[in-house]
Amino acid sequence: MANLNPYLSFRTDARAAMDFYQSVLGGELDVNVFSEFPGMVQDPSEADLVMHAQLTTPDGLVLMASDTPSSMPYEKPQGISVSLSGTSAETTKAVWEKLSEGATITMPLDNAPWGGLFGMLVDRFGIAWMLNGDPA
């Protein structure tokens, strides 16, 4: 079976972002930095940047991320959102409360016309999220 997973790109904030997402979603976080792999460090000041991070939640969700070294072009993510759906209203509210710390709310979490809860925000790391909790 194939997997389709969000893979987030950052300039230098991957570790902080993934630590934050782990505090929001729970789960196990594995982080590898560029210095762990021979020949991958071009700038010694970037040795501890994240080459690959993977957060696997107890529910089986997988979120991945990496930093982009200064030797490579980088553009902030745009035109895409990480969508978390199918959770209970209680879980949706709890995740929303944590994700919204320092975020820009683009659509407040509220009852959706299709049922359940729905809201949109851009978190403190510039990542757009959509939360959709199932009706009770």
Score class of each variant (00 low, 15 high):
58 P>F: 04
6 P>A: 00
40 M>S: 09
105 I>R: 07
46 E>V: 03
41 V>I: 03
82 V>E: 02
132 N>Y: 06
6 P>C: 01
26 G>F: 05
5 N>S: 14
116 G>V: 03
52 H>C: 04
31 V>G: 01
9 S>T: 15
55 L>P: 03
64 M>K: 05
74 Y>T: 06
70 S>D: 12
56 T>R: 14
12 T>Y: 04
81 S>P: 12
91 T>Y: 07
85 S>A: 12
32 N>T: 14
97 E>T: 11
13 D>Q: 15
80 I>G: 05
131 L>W: 03
110 D>T: 15
84 L>S: 10
64 M>G: 10
14 A>D: 03
85 S>K: 05
102 G>R: 03
50 V>F: 03
72 M>W: 01
28 E>I: 08
21 Y>H: 10
48 D>W: 04
90 E>W: 02
34 F>A: 01
11 R>H: 00
19 D>I: 13
128 A>Q: 14
75 E>R: 12
68 T>H: 00
1 M>C: 11
79 G>Q: 02
129 W>F: 09
59 D>C: 09
82 V>F: 03
48 D>Y: 02
105 I>G: 07
100 S>F: 05
74 Y>V: 08
126 G>E: 00
122 V>A: 10
53 A>E: 03
47 A>C: 06
95 V>F: 10
19 D>S: 07
112 A>E: 11
56 T>K: 11
2 A>Q: 14
81 S>E: 06
51 M>H: 10
55 L>V: 00
126 G>Y: 02
76 K>D: 14
33 V>L: 10
38 P>R: 00
21 Y>E: 12
4 L>I: 15
119 G>H: 07
90 E>C: 05
27 G>S: 07
131 L>F: 01
103 A>H: 01
69 P>V: 09
13 D>G: 05
92 T>C: 05
76 K>I: 04
37 F>L: 07
10 F>G: 01
83 S>V: 09
96 W>I: 09
116 G>Y: 12
130 M>N: 11
32 N>R: 12
43 D>W: 12
82 V>T: 05
25 L>K: 05
124 R>D: 00
75 E>W: 03
62 V>F: 01
80 I>E: 07
133 G>L: 00
6 P>N: 00
60 G>Q: 01
50 V>T: 14
114 W>F: 14
39 G>Y: 01
9 S>E: 13
136 A>T: 09
22 Q>D: 13
29 L>G: 04
94 A>N: 12
109 L>I: 13
62 V>K: 12
69 P>C: 08
65 A>S: 13
18 M>E: 04
85 S>Y: 08
41 V>Y: 03
107 M>Y: 15
121 L>I: 06
127 I>E: 06
